[in-house]
Amino acid sequence: MVAREQFQVELSKLRGDIISLAHETEKLLEKSLEALYNQDIDMANDIISYDTKLDQKELKINEDAILLIARQQPVATDLRRLIIALRISSDLERMGDNAKNIAKSTIHLGEEHGLTIHPALTDMKNIALKMVDLSIKAFEYEDITLARKLSELDDLVDSMYGEIIREMLEETATNPQKIQHIMQMAFSARYIERFADHTTNIGESILYLVKGETLNLNE
């Protein structure tokens, strides 16, 4: 298999770039929750500026993938590898945006005292991080069994999100003066839920890569 060695080399470099972007997105979510819990405004600002770096990395991945399509004119699975590289990098970029939005909520909340952050956000975040990990392993090994597992975890995140929102609504009734705080909590929960959704998109991309058809993991 000497043929198209260069193409395979470039494809695997692209894969490496996507995996590293995924790890950075993971870190960003982790940090965004840390900043939220600690009400660390400096950290929140760092997260916001770091997110622009992720945006640039996404653009670079897109450029590389488009160049490979133009130069190598791949077909079948090779073509789908590049198509999903475009999709997955876009999902990762959006995941970074969700982490950034949590940082923005942190800034909105300010250094107010006496606030408690809903502990279930940490549980949601932990599952979301597990989902990134799973989706990126599924991507790395082109493993549809791993990809399919995302669906179950996403259901779990969705139900936790529903639970948090119910509690928040009740709290607005009892503590109307805390409305700003409660809203930012609810937004943050929503951002984590969206973050997790994007990992199911990555899973769907893997299914598309392997099966050549579009399947839904997020129903």
């Binding site: 298999m1 043929a3 791949p74 079948a76 699975t77 090779d78």
Partner: peptide
């Protein structure tokens, strides 16, 4: 077929 059309041999 996949290998051939993807340029892996031939």
């Amino acid at each position: 077929t996949e290998d051939y059309i993807s340029g892996r041999f031939g």
